[in-house]
Simulated scan of single mutants.
Amino acid sequence: MKKTLFILASLLIMTSCNSQGKRKIVGETEYQKELNSFYKDASKSPLKKRDLKNFKGLEFFKIDSSFVVKANFTKIENAPTFEMATTTDRKPLYKEFGLVNFKINGKECQLTIYQSQDDLRDEKYKDYLFLPFTDDTSGEESYGGGRYMDIMTTDIITENTVILNFNNTYNPYCAYNDKYSCPLTPRKNHLNVEIKAGIKVFKKH
């Protein structure tokens, strides 16, 4: 899923070059516009046909700079490979890559970053990291199964620092269509705070 999100910039350029007579792509930021452009594209969108027909744009919380945080990063050495639970019987292999510690609204938080072992075998995606989380908006204002954030090893500024932008989060495809198999957010990655930033729950038609 995350692989598709990183090609959205090129899709947005293509859309802007062929936009005459078409609806304007909505979004408060370039990230939101790129995400909406991708979901609007019938050849790639995970939306069901009925939802795609009525699609005007994904819903997001208002951009909030307080949810762009500098986190302390701690690498997890010699982590064992494990099978991550999904919404189906599929069991993709992951490793715990590191821990990030940060504050949200004065509250201490910790999340675990994961590394897909399938991605490691692909030169294009070997630097991709996966950060799933739930919070106190999950199941109400945001998707109950949690939200995702993509991080790359190159995003880690130093050995112990990484910027987390919760405004740039996305839902698993399962939030839109139950035919997909999506990793379930591990219990340890629940934040006891409301993350009112990023993607909201999808209201199906």
Results as ranks from 00 to 15, higher is better:
P80Y: 02
K53H: 11
Q20V: 12
N101I: 08
D136M: 15
Q110D: 03
G21T: 06
Y143A: 02
L11S: 12
L52C: 04
S142D: 03
R121Y: 00
P46D: 13
K44W: 00
Q115F: 03
S10D: 14
K22H: 12
R121S: 00
M152Y: 12
K49Q: 09
D64I: 11
G139L: 00
I76S: 08
Q115A: 15
C109T: 06
L184Y: 00
D41Q: 07
M149N: 03
E140P: 00
L58D: 02
N72C: 03
N105Y: 06
T169P: 06
N105F: 09
E159C: 01
C17N: 14
L120A: 07
E34A: 08
K48T: 14
I199W: 07
K75A: 11
D155V: 14
K95C: 05
K40M: 13
S45G: 01
S138D: 08
L12A: 04
E59F: 11
S116D: 11
Q32L: 14
D127M: 14
G57A: 07
F82H: 04
Y180V: 00
K124V: 08
R50V: 15
R187G: 00
R147Q: 01
E34K: 12
I151S: 01
T88H: 09
T169N: 08
G145I: 11
Y94R: 09
K200D: 03
N165Q: 08
N167M: 12
I7Y: 06
L129W: 11
C17A: 14
R121G: 01
L164N: 05
E77Q: 04
K75S: 09
D135V: 13
R90P: 13
S65Q: 14
D41M: 07
D127Q: 10
N18T: 12
D155E: 09
N177Y: 11
K33G: 10
D41T: 15
E30F: 14
M1S: 15
S16A: 11
L93G: 11
L111W: 07
T154V: 12
Y125V: 03
I104P: 07
N192Y: 11
G21E: 02
D127V: 10
V69L: 11
T137Y: 05
T158F: 06
A71G: 00
V69E: 00
T134H: 02
V162D: 04
K44C: 09
T169I: 13
A175T: 03
T154M: 10
I163K: 02
F61L: 10
K48L: 12
I156A: 02
K204L: 13
A42T: 14
S142M: 11
S138T: 07
D118Q: 12
K95V: 15
S116Y: 11
F55T: 02
I163P: 05
T158H: 05
F102L: 01
T86I: 14
S138E: 08
Q117P: 00
D127Y: 04
G98Q: 02
L8M: 07
D136V: 13
N171L: 04
N168V: 07
F130E: 01
L47W: 06
N36S: 09
F130Y: 13
Y128E: 13
S138C: 01
R90T: 14
I199A: 06
